[in-house]
């Protein structure tokens, strides 16, 4: 009896401690997600003053919507373009910044600074860089006789331009995680390896990289979700154009909700995005986690 009460007390205490964050989670995460889920089965746009249930019509329409497939494909390419490169670059930068003896803090700051600049400002800077004729990039391209390349105004170039900019923006941020990860690797391990005469490549491949796997995994998830979350630059730079060539899923959701005022469709799109992100996170956590060493 007494034991039961003691157990109840401990449980009660735990729930009380969890309560505040739980309330916020329910209020600002679960409740909206459920509402969105419900709304995604309703027709709720300008043509229907009162939302009404329409089954999976929104999803059917979505499958037929060319723009949806376009933004989804774009987003996948955007993720493929940004995630591995920015993560690899971050790792490289961290290794370099960690090794550099002179100007260590300068190098770190230089690498990190794009992260501190707000995305809106970054977009404005790069808008100038990408300007044809007299933009910074055009001056460089002039040496190759390609000064009039229209980076943002051409369907073939615009995605590359975006990917490049986002890599530049994000790599410094991920570098910080790698720097922290590197600090956690005992110096003794490297010394031990050097006693054995291991080359720097062997040391990286057999020691540094495996021991950084937890960081890599964490950073990859962030990078991947970011590739779906980062759309601020589209507002400034292209509005998703030309002809949706740079449009991404989240921006399309925004357009659908706040420009087309089609809340039912926007909800359906949101559910697709949430499921997509959950799947990837689940794959990364449950699939890859087993292969990773944690200290």
């Amino acid at each position: 009896m007494g034991e039961l009460r003691a157990k109840w007390k401990v449980n009660m205490y735990a729930w009380l401690l969890l309560l505040p964050s739980l309330i916020f989670l329910l209020l600002f995460t679960f409740y909206p997600v459920i509402q969105t889920f419900i709304l995604s089965f309703h027709q709720a746009d300008l043509g229907s003053p009162e939302p009404f249930f329409n089954g999976i019509d929104n999803y059917k329409q979505m499958v037929e919507d060319e723009v949806f497939w376009k933004v989804l494909t774009n987003n996948i390419w955007f993720a493929i373009g940004t995630v591995p490169t920015s993560v690899a670059l971050a790792l490289g930068m961290a290794l370099f910044a960690n090794k550099a003896l002179r100007g260590k803090s300068f190098i770190r700051t230089a690498y990190f600074y794009p992260t501190v600049v707000p995305m809106i400002a970054v977009a404005n800077i790069w808008l100038f860089i990408y300007t044809p004729e007299y933009g910074a990039l055009s001056h460089v391209m002039e040496w190759f006789g390609k000064g009039d390349m229209n980076w943002l105004g051409d369907q073939k170039n615009v995605m590359w331009a975006m990917i490049f900019m986002v890599i530049w923006k994000e790599a410094g941020y991920f570098m910080i995680f790698y720097l922290a990860g590197l600090q956690n690797i005992s110096q003794e391990l490297y010394e031990s390896a050097s006693m054995e005469g291991a080359s720097s490549w062997t040391v990286f491949r057999r020691i540094t990289f495996p021991l950084l796997m937890p960081t890599t995994m964490f950073v990859s998830i962030i990078a991947f979700t970011n590739s779906f979350k980062l759309v601020d630059h589209l507002v400034i730079m292209t509005k998703g154009g030309p002809d949706n060539a740079s449009n991404l899923l989240l921006y399309y959701i925004y357009e659908t909700a706040f420009s087309f005022w089609d809340q039912g469709m926007a909800s359906a799109l949101t559910i697709v995005m949430v499921v997509l992100l959950l799947l990837v996170a689940a794959f990364q956590f449950f699939g890859m986690d087993k292969k990773i060493h944690y200290n």
Partner: peptide, 16 residues
């Protein structure tokens, strides 16, 4: 110029 001419950069082009 070919391609999309940016709304915000057209006035800059004119001024330049």
């Amino acid at each position: 110029p070919e391609g999309v001419n940016e709304w915000a950069t057209v006035p800059s082009d004119f001024l330049e």
